[in-house]
Design a protein around this nucleic acid. Structure first.
Lengths: 338, 338
DNA sequence: CGGAGGGCGTTATACGTAAAACCTCATGCG
DNA sequence: CGCATGAGGTTTTACGTATAACGCCCTCCG
């Protein structure tokens, strides 16, 4: 920070205004009700303006023992979804004088390494999504207040959790497709070890199994359009009756499925209904537009930050999952009579 | 940071090891060549491990007068492109013991407000892209070392710049389409005040104007698939001969153009060739896959961080634009003989 | 045998801020 | 008059770290 001609400190301002450093701190900290005269206060403010004084945040943080900075650990920055989460969290943070630092896991979705080696700033708390246990223990060892996003609420970590109501979203998809008349399902699952994906599989199986005469097979792929395409292609050209509906864990997987269908000469939705989950920009960019479940990423981030603030203030975070919404578009239709 | 039972300090470690605080600092800072015996050093390390000691970064930063943290100001987090920039910058930063904090402009691509209100951490430097002058003056007032991404190198700011060779990319697109035989062009321009987009327009006009018998019209839209669709629809249904090639400033604009073409009953590439710029995941998710210019976002971020490190160390940043590459896919073809 | 060094630490200080504790006058009031 | 009160500050301290400056003892060499 100090560089070349070093930055002015509160002591420089004091000298310029002819007062003590303490007076400067009082005035600029707005804590001078009956302690400093209006005239002196104005002199101090003037001197500060003159010198272009900006308080040294590092010193302030050290003195106050807090940084008003929290860390948001996201699986990957590349995802539109977590960009929304960040936006929401940062908005709430800003209204409370907090800043948000991002720690994207370097290796795509997967275990994060050491968030603290990268985040040089000292932290007041952490909001983490899809993190591995090892990184978590580092955090718990630091006694840092922690809020987990989209994680098992019954997990042994004892951290507060904020979750989207993914189970309800999957329910709605299943209901939608069953009502359309589909009975043979293929589940294109994200090949990622995370609670949020476990929920999808569990809920889907429960819903489909409840209806007699249904079949449900599963294919797996990491969240990559390319790989998803190959996985879907293989699954769709397997022997036996072809599924009429393809339920994807994620919009990107659905985009891969589109390409697979095109290569196999299957029309969407006539030959194959496809659903996604997320409602990314991608969902309306592809043809036909994708039936998917809209997740309110920004609200998710807001709720995460609110929960963390609650923890920091010793309150109990608001409970309750965040509702999601089925968005029906052109990629789903009744199965053709074949 | 200190919370509940306050975190152990170097003094606690010293007491546990039976040495002075200075000794702890020396040992843990790896500066004890001939100052402390191996046995004592090991006692200190053992005590630190025992107590779970973690140095207070705020105090260290204050003492050292630097934070090893830099700010990356990006237009919006939502963009895959800047996620790549961040990844590259963070990678280089990490190898030099630096951390990177993100400041996404809250209002999408456009003037950033006050990066420092949000970034609570003190900073050693800034890498900024597409920033407005007001935010810049705040930075310059702070005397913070600054590197600008994709900005006019002749700008009056005197900051170091790192640029992609966008002009060359546009040249390659123009060459490609002209070689295919196109003569009537529509430029779907990003409605954003930024140097990088000015370059596109300038270079495109220069290239096309150099060939006799060509026409080039321009439509504008903000970088949004929806709005781009409407702008493209209007421009393509204007009276007069229809353009045979649509050159978009950005892949997202191209995605909007696809939807416009679909609504107008135009086939791509038979009736209309379309090009983008960025090579996002989107580019291969749409049908037909998009001919575009690949920008190496991660390399861009790496070079930006390297330039900032150079500035911090008093060296002169490496010069030279980053090369880009035309990727020809299915969205361009010779104009149909009509 | 004297003192010059090296090995092994310690003591002291500074970074810039916030705030507790203190100090000095007037003034008001019984 | 004597003392409490309050306005308007100042002095001091602490946050946790890194490091410059200093000390002490032992050994070795002239």
């Amino acid at each position: 920070m100090a560089r070349g001609s070093t930055r002015p400190t509160s002591r420089d301002v004091a000298q310029a205004a002819g007062v003590s450093q303490a007076a400067v701190s009082l005035v600029l900290g707005d804590k001078w009700r009956g302690r400093v005269s209006e005239a002196t206060a104005e002199r101090v403010r003037e001197a500060a303006r003159e010198l272009g004084y900006r308080p040294n945040l590092t010193a302030r943080n050290l003195r106050l023992g807090r940084t008003r900075t929290v860390l948001l650990v996201v699986p990957a920055l590349t995802t539109e979804f977590f960009a929304g989460v960040y936006t929401g969290a940062a908005r709430v943070a800003a209204t409370h004088g907090f800043g948000v630092v991002l720690y994207p896991s370097p290796e795509g979705i997967g275990p994060a390494r050491d968030p603290f080696a990268s985040a040089q700033a000292a932290l007041d708390g952490v909001i983490a999504s899809s993190m591995a246990a090892d990184a978590l223990t580092a955090i718990r060892g630091d006694q840092l207040p922690l809020v987990m996003l989209d994680s098992d609420p019954t997990g042994s970590l004892g951290a507060a959790t904020v979750n989207l109501d993914i189970a309800d979203g999957v329910r709605q998809i299943a209901e939608h497709l069953l009502t359309l008349g589909h009975r043979r399902f293929l589940h294109l699952a994200a090949d990622v070890a995370s609670w949020t994906f476990e929920v999808r599989a569990r809920e889907l199986h429960a819903r489909v199994a409840a209806v007699p005469g249904t079949t449900l097979t599963t294919a797996r792929a990491p969240i990559s359009i390319e790989v998803a395409q190959h996985a879907a292609e293989a699954a769709l050209s397997a022997p036996g009756p072809r599924p009429t509906a393809l339920i994807c864990d994620d919009d990107k997987l659905a985009a891969g499925a589109y390409k697979a269908a095109r290569r196999l000469g299957l029309r969407i939705p006539e030959d194959l209904s496809v659903t996604g989950l997320d409602d990314l920009a991608l969902a309306t960019a592809i043809d036909p537009e994708l039936t998917t479940v809209r997740l309110d990423a920004e609200l998710f981030g807001e709720r995460g930050m609110q929960a963390l603030l609650a923890v920091l203030e010793g309150r109990t975070p608001e409970a309750g999952d965040i509702p999601v919404e089925l968005v029906v578009r052109g990629s789903t239709a009744p199965p053709s009579a074949s």
